[in-house]
């Protein structure tokens, strides 16, 4: 698949804009899924996923053909998702400061305040419930959990996508799993 993708990229770089539609077709599902799981809103996810492909197109000449295209594309998409979340939450930078200490305190603050009443949660269908529980995770844990268990990326690739040391990725996945476990402990 990488060979085909690189071939299409070279065609686009030579000026054949239409060749880009094959690239979009190939990756639309993965990119849209990350955006939807991350933003928990269909319209926003569609907008951001489209934006990711447009950014990739306009910056295509900076892509290193030796690297994996999907990693590069995921990186653009995840950055855009984080930007969008940041814009909705003016105190995001404050959160980011707290993340330095990396405690679970932040998680417990968020989840205990924002959760729906338990009877409502219990009435949900399985798929709705999964999406809901993921959406309750703090952003930084949600991203790694999505990449690991929904996109099924290897840890090293998650580290490349998020431009984050492997150790940090692991810590976040551990904390994400613990956070989810606590959310689900009454399941």
């Amino acid at each position: 698949m990488d060979a085909l993708v690189n071939k299409r990229i070279k065609q686009v770089l030579k000026g054949d804009q239409h060749a880009y539609s094959d690239i979009v077709s190939l990756y639309q599902q993965k990119v849209y899924q990350v955006c939807f799981r991350m933003l928990n809103n269909q319209h926003e996810a569609e907008d951001i996923a489209q934006e990711a492909f447009i950014r990739a197109y306009t910056n295509l000449h900076t892509f290193d053909l030796e690297r994996k295209f999907s990693t590069w594309l995921f990186r653009i998409a995840t950055n855009l998702c984080i930007d969008r979340i940041r814009k909705k939450k003016p105190d995001y930078y404050l959160d980011a400061e707290v993340t330095g200490t990396d405690g679970l305190d932040l998680y417990s603050q968020i989840s205990s305040n924002d959760r729906l009443p338990e009877e409502e949660v219990e009435r949900m269908e399985l798929q709705e419930r999964i999406q809901y529980e993921i959406s309750c995770l703090p952003d930084k844990y949600r991203m790694v959990i999505i990449l690991k268990y929904i996109e099924e990326l290897p840890l090293q690739e998650i580290s490349d996508v998020l431009d984050m040391p492997l150790g940090t990725v692991k810590t976040r996945i551990h904390r994400g799993r613990e956070a989810l476990r606590k959310q689900l402990s009454n399941l």
Partner: peptide
């Protein structure tokens, strides 16, 4: 197992055309 049982999310129709 719970997270992994998440169903694949369908892409909205005409996504490719809209990007293009």
């Amino acid at each position: 197992a719970f997270v992994k049982s998440a169903a694949v999310i369908e892409v909205p129709p005409n996504f490719v055309e809209q990007v293009m």
